[in-house]
Simulated assay, not measured.
Amino acid sequence: MTPDDPGAPASPAVPGAAGPVPALDPRDPPDPREPPRASRREAALIAAAAVAGTALVAAFAFDPARGGSSAMLAAPGALYTVLAVFALAWLRRRGELRAALRPRSGDLARGAFVAAALYGLAMAVQLTLAPRGSPREAWILRLYLQLGDPSADARVFVGAAVFVIAALEEVVWRGLVMRALEGPLGPTAAWLLSSALFAAAHLPTLFLLGDPFAGPNPLLVAAGLGCSLVWGRVVHRTGRLPPAIFAHAFFSWAIVSFPIWRP
């Protein structure tokens, strides 16, 4: 009787010896140590909801008729509070909440450094793209006029509100949208697409903050794309949200509290 004979008795297993690897059954449950990947449908719904909500709020908040009003900040604050609560619940359900928000020493400094670099870049872009005295100066003028009088005492409250809204935005766009898109697309494509979607959600400002002489205003769309690429990269490098949250919040606060343009 040979070993190949079906009737031959099975050889005893030898500890440590290599043996045949059983085929994976697609019906087997997923590894509980790995968070479930978002499906293509779930990722698309999450991204669509974030884009639609942001675009609608941008159209409302940046309407020139609401310039300097409390509604201009209340609308995005309300939207992102709701979306951030959903994002945190979504991360918790997947078992990723603690890891995503786990603070570490240096997060604050890292976020402040990234924010300072972006602030310096914003100043350079303003001097190049919309220099004082050019028709395109109207682009940045309209943006700051929408926020209200930069010399008003209430500007400190505006800066605080913008800080909080920016932090919530980061939870939503990097913690929810980008993370969901990573399921069907992978990290790199999700990073690029979520950044493009964040910029696209601000398209209403092209026309709402436009100028008859300078034309459509690209500042918020361009800033949304460029900054999102940076903040998404920070999340990928650290594997956590806090550094990007601080970077986004400090940058937005600095733009409001220390305007790169004054009348």
Rank of each mutant, 00 (worst) to 15 (best):
A10D: 15
P12T: 06
P12A: 15
V14I: 11
V14F: 08
P15R: 04
A18F: 12
G19H: 14
P20I: 14
A23V: 08
L24S: 13
D25Y: 05
R27G: 06
P29F: 11
P29I: 07
P30F: 05
P30Y: 10
P32M: 09
P35D: 14
P36T: 09
S39G: 02
R41H: 13
A43Y: 06
A47T: 01
A49Y: 09
A49P: 01
A50N: 01
A52D: 06
A52V: 03
A58D: 10
F60Y: 14
A65D: 15
R66A: 03
R66H: 11
G67I: 00
G67V: 05
G67Q: 11
S69W: 09
L73A: 00
L73D: 08
A78I: 09
A78T: 08
L79A: 01
Y80M: 06
V82F: 14
A84N: 12
F86D: 10
F86T: 09
A89M: 12
W90M: 02
R92V: 12
R93V: 02
R94A: 02
G95F: 07
E96N: 04
E96T: 01
L97R: 08
R98D: 15
A99F: 03
A99I: 06
A100F: 07
A100S: 12
G106Y: 10
L108N: 02
A109W: 12
G111W: 11
A116P: 07
A117Y: 05
A117R: 00
L118N: 04
M123Q: 02
V125H: 08
V125C: 13
L127V: 04
T128L: 14
R132T: 07
G133Y: 11
R136C: 04
R136E: 15
E137H: 05
A138M: 03
R142S: 04
Q146T: 06
L147W: 12
D149A: 05
D149C: 06
D149R: 15
P150V: 01
D153F: 15
R155I: 03
V156H: 15
V158D: 03
A161P: 08
A161G: 06
A161Y: 11
I165F: 13
I165N: 04
G175Q: 08
L181D: 07
E182I: 02
E182M: 00
E182S: 03
E182C: 09
G183Y: 14
P184I: 02
P184T: 02
L185P: 04
G186D: 07
G186T: 05
P187H: 09
P187A: 11
A190G: 01
A190F: 05
L193F: 10
L193N: 12
L197A: 00
F198P: 04
F198K: 09
H202A: 01
T205E: 11
T205W: 12
L206A: 02
F207V: 09
L208I: 00
L209A: 01
G210H: 07
G215D: 03
N217E: 13
N217H: 05
N217V: 01
L219E: 04
A222S: 13
A223R: 01
G224T: 00
L225D: 03
L225F: 12
S228W: 10
V230H: 03
V230S: 02
V235M: 13
T238F: 08
G239D: 03
P243C: 01
A244I: 00
H248T: 03
A249Y: 06
V256Q: 12
V256E: 12
S257T: 07
S257L: 09
P259A: 11
I260E: 13
W261Q: 09
